[in-house]
Each structure stands twice: as structure tokens, then as C-alpha cells.
Design a binder for these strands. Structure first.
Lengths: 347, 347
DNA sequence: TCGAGCTACTAGCTCGATCTAGTTTTGGTA
DNA sequence: TACCAAAACTAGATCGAGCTAGTAGCTCGA
């Protein structure tokens, strides 16, 4: 028995060579093709053989090779998602993307944008893994041209649309969000309502516009006050310092929750009480963002619904390339907690 | 010229079939093998041809197929990392893992553990992508047996070692961390120092032990007070309520920063001032965790160094399977800010 | 007894890049 | 000019699973 020598290349790390379908087939006594049939769940195998194959595979510790599979079938069923690990909103979005992706029988590949890996770089990486579709959270408009990518693979932009053409866009109605915030504050009796904006961040332009329009509609055009901000606590802090220096409003709407941290940091150190001295409304209602002693009033985006829509759009575009891309904007909802209150000066 | 019909299978999503090395070779007028040589950076191609090939590839929009590559070479150079998207420490760790991984010429595949995807599931997924090594942040000890995985692929556990045998472990010296915290507080004059522990979370046992030992060494064995906690703000809040009900210490050391949020939440609502009424020390010094009006004293782990060591261990075990696994514990460092102060009752 | 119509199964080409074992070209030297 | 080694390049097998086209064996009806 000149033992069939299995001592092959055995690349680094290959402890014992992984078993293949051929190994399973030999072990069970059937053809390779049949093993393939069983693992694909295709028809053409009797129930008895199916069981024997599965048992044999389990005994050998066989695992289907996704590389070979993807190569031959020319499908990976991979969906890539680009996001920033530091943004609570995006992280929450990613978590809710998993169930949607599974529902359609795809796999989710995470592409993390970090200070050292920009969007273009991450896209390139995900395409190397042959993702069949990409979901981009908070796409960056300048420089990184996603247009050329959209030719290669279906693209879904979340938060805002930056790429003209064949791209799906899933976002929330940002203008409506800040409008709700203004409505609520005006209803409480506020007039001096400032907005710490989000600069060029995703959704920020519309949030700014919604604020402006709502103020105007309430006859408070002369009270409009937009302070340059951003989506970080530093930006919120800087804007807060500016407000303190130039004179406080009775209420502030920030462009996102993260900026609230900086705002509160400055406010607390300045001896202000929230909401007695200042009402505050954030945006995103981040679940992971807890502020000690404070329950933040914030505008909530329907993340699970958005995730589902984004995946659905990508899958649809993958499987029916001819259909037209859509753009949807879900209505957000103001969640009132206790950082908003009738202002002191109101009688 | 019966136009060579390129209208192949064109799976769903395949807009225009992706160009292959054969296409590039034909376009440039060389053999497939040579194109391969150029893209691998192997020697055996003249500088002139190398340029022509690269230009031709760029013109066609050619991208190397990682599936075919991995299949044939039996190497993917993928490293998988398991982590929890919600844990700031682990997220920060992941960010620092990228540069290390690149340095060794590998790719990082993120495996996110979420409430709906447990560790075992994520491991399975990463192995499907043929990761050659796995880095597990905060490995779960019970149930999910990683032992069997360690036979298939090199395993590095970060935070604590839970799997006996051929596994590398990279962690910080947790006992030393809480010891430093106790030392600092005792030095300030505290005696009634409580510890809100981390339950069964990674590192929590050693942090608890370090606290106990340090207290004993300072002759404060009778002051030892460990309250059941966890790594979440809820756990911190619950423990804080218990402390309030049973009588406050003058200082509290939590098992991680996240728990501090809950602790402060309860403390602030109870009208306590920090650090005047209560000194607080956290663990991890999370960069992304900012508390308004508060600069938290915390124990910092050297994340970049740990990430580098983890990757190095994985790569070493992949490329030199025979070397013995190691276990290292880096010294943490207490970062003193302003949540600690001499207690009021001290003269 | 034949063959039609099944089900259960198999042979062997294929996906795209890698890699071994060659072959041709080049350039330098006797 | 002849020769040789090195450099530049190529043919073709190969990785593991998927898939098409086909065969073997069975049942059933006429």
C-alpha cells in the first residue's frame, strides 16, 4: 500500500492540508460531483446518500472553499459596507445590516474607514474581495470619485447622495428632522434658537436648511443663527465656546449627538444647567451614547428600516441590473426626553 | 473575423465581464504568465515590458482576482479579527491593527460580534474566507470552544487567555493596572476605596485581584469592598445604586470606562460632585469616550503595542508553525486627570 | 420484451491566476 | 564566429468546486 502521499505544498500555516470535496467523495465512496450536489442543496441525490455525504464531511472536518466556489460560479454573494468605526450612527447601522443581508442570502464584508485608510482605499480593498455590491455610509463627496466604481458594481449611498447617475440613495429626511426640533422648541416658547451645524458632513446641509426654513416659517427669520460645527465633540465644544462668547441663545440644535458632548462639556464647565439655562436637541439618538445624568432629546433615524432598504436596493441592482436606481428619504422622529424645557425668560 | 464572442455567463451583477490576465496579455501582446510575473512583482520581466503590462492593465481597468489567486497559491494572507463593535477599547484596537497587518503584507478581515452573531458564528464565517490566522479580542470562555479552531489556524487571544494549548495571548497586566489605581488613591489619602468589578469579562478577574492585593498591601484589607459590575453603563449604574444604598466610599475604581458612565449618571442625579464627594478611576482610557465636564482618570493600555504584538504573533505562527506560542502582558499606565482628589474627611 | 421516463449518479471541462519546467533571446567573452 | 550563461519570456498543469452533458439502473405500461 504505497500510501498516496498527501504531502503537498502545504503553504505556511497549512497545518494539515484542508480536506476537499475529493477527500469527502473518496471517504464516502461517491463522486466529487455528488458531494458538490449535496453541499449546494441541489437536487439529484437520494436522501440516504445525502446523509452519508454530510456525515463523511463532518467526520473529516470538511469546510467548503469559498475561493474555489466563488471563482467557478463567478459569484461571491458578498456585499461590502463602508463605514467609520468611530461614528455611533454608522456602527449601529452596520449591526442592523447583518440581518437584512442574511435574509437575502448574502454575506457582509466590513470596510472600515479610519484616519489612515480613506474611502477610496477601502473601496479598492472591498472590490478586491469581489463584493457584488457596495453600501457606503456617509460617502465623502470630494476627491474620492465613486462614479467610476458605480460602473463596476451597484452602489448604495446612505446618508446623502454624492454620486450622480446610477446610484441608489437611502437617507432620512434631514430637513424634516431639524424642522421637528425647531417646532418642538418654538412650541415650548423658545425664540432664540441656534443651530450648531455639521459643516460638510453627510446630511448636514439639509439639517441646516430644515432649521432655516422652520425658523422662517415660525416668523423667526431674524433669530436664525447658524454656528459652524461638525460631527465631533471638538467641533461641538468650539461652537459652544463661540456661543458663550457672543451671547447665549435659549436653545441649541446640534447637527448630531456627538457634537452635543462637546457642547455640554463647555456648558457644564461654564456653570450652565441643562435644560434650565439651555435647552439642547441632538441628532441621531445614538443608542451607544450615554451622557451621565442627562437624557438627551434627539432626532431619531429609523436605522433598521434604512438598513433593510439599503440592502434591498443593492440586491435588487445586483440581480436585476436593468431596474432604475431609487432615492428614498425616510421620515425621522423627534424623541423628547429631558434636555428641553420652557425657557426662563418666557412668561 | 468571426468576432470572438465574449458574451459569457455574466452572472447577476456582472455588468461587463471583468477583464482577466488573459485579456491584458492579449492587449499587450505577451503571455499570461508574464502578466502574472509583473503583478506578483516577481523577477523575470524587463523593465520595459513591466511598464507596458501595467499600462495595458490600467487601460483595461484590470484588477487581480483574489479568489483565483488564493485558490492557486493556497494562500490568502488574510488575518481575521473578532471584536465587539460596541466596545471602544476593541474598536481602538482594531484601528491600530491595520498598520501592523499591512507591515507584514497581510489583509485584515473584520469579524463583528453582535447581539445576534456570537463568537462561534463569526469564527466560522472568518474561516470560510480562509483566514490564515485569527485574533480574538475579549474571547468568551464558556461554550464557544476555540480549542478546535486552534488546530485549524493560529489563534491569538487578546485581553485574556481562555484556551489552553497552542494559543498566543496578548494582554495588559490587569492586576498592575488596578494596583496603580489603588496606590494613587491611597497616596491621596483615601482608605474607603471600592471596586466595581467586571464580572466575568476579559481581564476583570485580574483587575479584581490586583485591587485586593494592593489594598491588602496597604494594610486596608478590612476596607476591601468589591461590588458586582460589568463592562456596560447599565452595570455601572446598578453597582452605583448599590453603593449609594449601602453607604458611599470616598473613591471607586471601576473595571472599565464604560461602567463609569453609569456610575456618574447615578452619582450626578444623586447630587454628588466629582471628585469632591467621590473620586473615580476608570480602566482603558478610551479615546472615544468623552464625558461632558469631566476628565476621567483612567488606566491606559498600550493599544498600539498590543496590536503590533498580536499581529506579530499570528504572522509568526503562520509562517513558522513550529515555534512555541507566547503569552505577554504589557504594563498599563495610570493617567491622572481630575476625577481624583484628596477626600474631604482626610485632614 | 421493449422502451419511455424517471431518479441517482458520474466524467470532465471550466473559472482566473500561479508556478514549474521549459524555450528563446540577449550580451559578453574566448 | 562560436559558445555560454543569464535574462526574458512561454506552455501547460494545477488549485477546489460548479456545472453541463451524459450514463446506469429502475419502474411501469403495452
Amino acid at each position: 500500500m504505497a500510501g498516496q502521499d498527501r504531502t503537498r505544498g502545504n503553504a505556511p500555516g497549512g497545518r494539515e492540508r484542508k480536506p476537499t470535496m475529493a477527500d469527502v467523495a473518496r471517504h464516502v465512496g461517491v463522486s466529487r460531483a455528488l458531494v458538490s450536489i449535496v453541499f449546494r442543496g441541489a437536487e439529484g441525490a437520494s436522501e440516504a446518500t445525502r446523509q452519508r455525504v454530510l456525515e463523511g464531511a463532518a467526520a473529516l472536518g470538511y469546510r467548503r472553499d469559498s475561493l474555489a466556489r466563488g471563482l467557478r460560479s463567478n459569484r461571491t454573494r458578498n456585499l461590502g459596507i463602508l463605514f467609520d468605526l468611530r461614528r455611533p450612527f454608522e456602527v449601529e447601522f452596520v449591526e442592523h445590516t447583518y440581518p437584512a443581508v442574511e435574509k437575502y442570502g448574502y454575506h457582509l464584508l466590513l470596510g472600515a474607514v479610519t484616519p489612515h485608510r480613506n474611502q477610496a482605499r477601502v473601496v479598492e480593498e472591498l472590490l478586491t474581495y469581489r463584493c457584488e455590491g457596495l453600501i457606503v455610509l456617509g460617502p465623502e463627496p470630494d476627491g474620492d470619485r465613486l462614479e467610476s466604481i458605480a460602473d463596476e458594481v451597484p452602489l448604495v449611498e446612505v446618508g446623502r447622495g454624492v454620486t450622480p447617475g446610477r446610484v441608489d440613495v437611502v437617507r432620512n429626511d434631514d430637513a424634516l428632522g431639524t424642522r421637528q426640533a425647531v417646532d418642538h422648541l418654538v412650541h415650548l416658547g423658545h425664540r432664540a434658537i441656534a443651530h450648531i451645524d455639521g459643516g460638510t458632513n453627510p446630511g448636514a446641509r439639509d439639517r441646516r436648511a430644515g432649521y432655516r426654513e422652520a425658523m422662517t416659517d415660525h416668523g423667526l427669520a431674524h433669530e436664525i443663527r447658524v454656528v459652524a460645527g461638525g460631527y465631533t465633540d471638538e467641533a461641538g465644544a468650539t461652537a459652544a465656546r463661540q456661543l458663550l462668547a457672543e451671547g447665549l441663545p435659549t436653545a441649541v440644535i446640534t447637527a448630531n449627538d456627538q457634537a452635543v458632548i462637546g457642547l455640554l462639556d463647555v456648558a457644564v464647565r461654564a456653570g450652565l444647567r441643562i435644560p434650565e439655562d439651555l435647552s439642547v436637541i441632538g441628532y441621531d439618538d445614538s443608542r451607544f451614547l450615554r451622557l451621565p445624568g442627562i437624557d438627551l432629546t434627539s432626532v431619531r433615524q429609523d436605522i433598521p428600516a434604512m438598513a433593510e432598504l439599503a440592502v434591498q436596493a443593492a440586491v435588487e441592482r445586483i440581480e436585476l441590473p436593468e431596474t432604475e436606481p431609487r432615492s428614498v428619504a425616510l421620515p425621522p422622529q423627534l424623541v423628547v426626553r429631558n434636555t428641553t424645557k420652557t425657557p426662563k425668560n418666557a412668561e
